[in-house]
Nucleic acid binder design. Structure first.
Lengths: 155, 155
DNA sequence: CGGACGAGGTTCGGCAAGTGAACCCAGCAT
DNA sequence: ATGCTGGGTTCACTTGCCGAACCTCGTCCG
């Protein structure tokens, strides 16, 4: 019985990927989370073709994930930089989840980037939790319920 | 100073995206998490071109995210289905993170799919936590440290 | 037996997207 | 005036995505 019937056309995974699922988009965001904000720095850091970077930045701005802000270094003309919006900052767990998977399954050595809690210095990771405070070990502990129907299945 | 220097060439985000970052790959995995395992069912559910699905399944199998297993319905010849490996199952938090972001920022109505903890029925979500048990609110509470160096920056 | 059927593909021609290199433009410095 | 730099645009080329058509292997039906 593999008919997992819910309305795929409005699936949130698909919707999110429509916004950040193009090639390079998530890597651009990774850099912005690391504090890189300027066109040339992004281009250097990523090795992305300029035309593609122009396009990705434009769509991310249009989607409200980044915002384009003027700045001015002394003795320089005014330029623009790209900063995360709140909507963009909410993608942080997604990036961390991708990073963790890579650390665990593609590693040839220690993780190239370690995340620490600023307050206590302990390692930061993503977890699945439920609203009762339990930590969820994996998909087998989760039931997916389609909106509007009593359909329930293992996820 | 936006030089955020760590070795991008081995960044785990990039590595992960090299495995599952092609168009459709994560949507195929979403379906497999929902229990869809067969070629024709995947094709129907996603509306993906057959040629692309063939290719995505092959690379996901090759990467060890899915495994191709024979099965046989009675009165049918032997066929193959695609199942998550442990490596694939570890992508669950990533999918959930993508889904949550879409639920929060693209919603025109209630989330199309709700996740519940099988034991207690409470809603399941992704969280950032540190090994000391604190919940991390966002990127501003996290410091990223490049491996091998004392480099530290806001993430 | 011959023929139809369905799952799971492969092949093909056309269109969209990604790529590197070259070029452009504004403003500051000389 | 000449050059330099950040932030792009344009161009020719290649790669990737797409739908439709075709193929293949076993099963069923007559």
């Amino acid at each position: 019985m593999s008919d997992a019937s819910f309305d795929r056309s409005r699936c949130s995974v698909a919707g999110t990927l429509a916004v950040v699922g193009e090639k390079w988009s998530l890597l651009v965001l990774r850099e912005t989370f690391l504090g890189v904000r300027r066109f040339a720095d992004l281009q250097r850091a990523l090795g992305i073709p300029k035309a593609v970077l122009t396009d990705r930045l434009a769509t991310l701005v249009q989607e409200g994930v980044l915002r384009r802000e003027p700045y001015q270094d002394e003795g320089e003309r005014q330029r623009h930089e790209y900063r995360l919006t709140g909507k963009g900052r909410d993608l942080y767990p997604t990036l961390v989840a991708l990073m963790e998977w890579g650390d665990r399954h593609l590693a040839d050595g220690p993780p190239p980037l370690a995340l620490e809690h600023r307050d206590c210095g302990a390692r930061v990771r993503v977890a699945l939790v439920c609203d009762d405070g339990h930590e969820v070990a994996g998909p087998h502990e989760v039931a997916a319920r389609a909106a509007g129907a009593g359909v329930e299945r293992r996820a």
